[in-house]
């Protein structure tokens, strides 16, 4: 009799507590976030800030491991192939994650991942202050007058900077001379030193030089103005080119699908309640010229997709795609 009551209580207990235990994930060993870029870059910085926030809320160490190489595809691949126990994540720009498949680098789609976005970055057209260009119009006129003469520094063919100048070139028909560097910061420094005249890298990477008046920002490559702490407002390029479109570039932490459901639920809860109010991330974004933009779930997929589309079709039109984007679920924007 007693025994059966005990069983009964146990059974009720199981029914009552099982879902709760299921929803709350308590990691028992350190979690690894693979940053597929070098230590110190913009992905690395924002990921480390986010990792510190997550550490507090998960009660477990979150270790950031840098696995740079092959435009970030190697580290991403390792995260994809790691055991699906929820202890290996990756981080980066959603538009890269979505376009590896088009470049034939990795067979993975954006929808294969749970996206936990933290900030969005926009590109800025910046010029060396010694150049005569005072506005986007000056620059475009000069580029039309001297095709392939004006040097533009970017972080390479898959970079946000190259996407930006390519989009401008498509919209206006200008021709420029593309000079590539190892990353956003070296590209910006090349413009500061005068080795190149123009850069179209992210605002994050130019912020400090803009504040110090070593780079003159001409416009945000997008349709919203950017408030930069210590400088003021940078107006959008749409003031000059009315129907110009450039979707924002979202960054975040990515967890491959197939991990236990409680991992995803716990992270979503943390994103909804903690990350969206994170002072550390807000402060980081404001001082670096990034937009604080936390998102997860379907919302995150919807936000990230336009940049993937733009990026993938830019590659396809430039002859760089190995797989046509529309065959892998990326329609033309």
């Amino acid at each position: 009799m007693l025994k059966s009551i005990a069983y009964g209580i146990a059974a009720v207990g199981l029914v009552l507590f099982a879902p709760a235990a299921h929803a709350q994930w308590k990691p028992t060993k350190p979690i690894t976030i693979i940053v597929p870029w070098a230590a110190g870059g913009s992905t690395d910085q924002v990921t480390r800030v986010t990792a510190a926030e997550l550490e507090t809320h998960l009660g477990q160490k979150v270790v950031v491991v840098n696995q740079p190489g092959a435009s970030g595809s190697i580290g991403t691949k390792n995260a994809l192939e790691a055991p699906k126990d929820g202890y290996t994540w990756t981080a980066g720009a959603a538009q890269d994650l979505g376009t590896y498949i088009v470049l034939g680098m990795l067979d993975t789609r954006l929808s294969d991942w749970h996206l936990f976005l933290n900030v969005a970055n926009v590109a800025v057209v910046g010029v060396n202050p010694a150049t005569p260009y005072k506005s986007v119009k000056d620059l475009l006129d000069a580029m039309k007058a001297k095709p392939e003469q004006i040097t533009v520094a970017t972080a390479g063919v898959t970079s946000a900077g190259h996407n930006a100048i390519e989009a401008i070139a498509r919209a206006t028909g200008i021709k420029y001379r593309h000079v590539t560097y190892d990353g956003g910061n070296p590209a910006v420094i090349a413009t500061v030193s005068g080795e190149t005249e123009v850069t179209t890298q992210l605002a994050v990477e130019q912020a400090e030089m803009i504040r110090a008046k070593r780079i003159r920002p001409l416009a945000v490559v997008g349709d919203t103005a950017l408030e930069l702490e210590g400088y003021g407002t940078i107006s959008p390029i749409t003031q000059e080119l009315q129907d110009f479109k450039a979707p924002a570039n979202y960054f975040g932490i990515f967890v491959p699908k197939g991990v236990p459901a409680e991992v995803v639920q716990t992270l979503e809860k943390i994103w909804a309640e903690k990350i969206s109010n994170s002072e550390a991330l807000k402060k980081y974004a404001a001082s670096r010229g990034a937009l604080f933009a936390p998102a997860y779930g379907a919302d995150a997929q919807a936000k990230a997709m336009p940049a993937v589309q733009a990026n993938a079709w830019l590659m396809a039109d430039g002859g760089k795609a190995k797989v046509s984007p529309d065959t892998v679920g990326i329609p033309r924007p």
């Binding site: 001379r177 593309h178 590539t180 430039g318 002859g319 760089k320």
Partner: peptide
């Protein structure tokens, strides 16, 4: 060549 790259690169 199909990518129209600068021939010096």
């Amino acid at each position: 060549e199909y990518m129209n790259i600068n021939p010096y690169t």
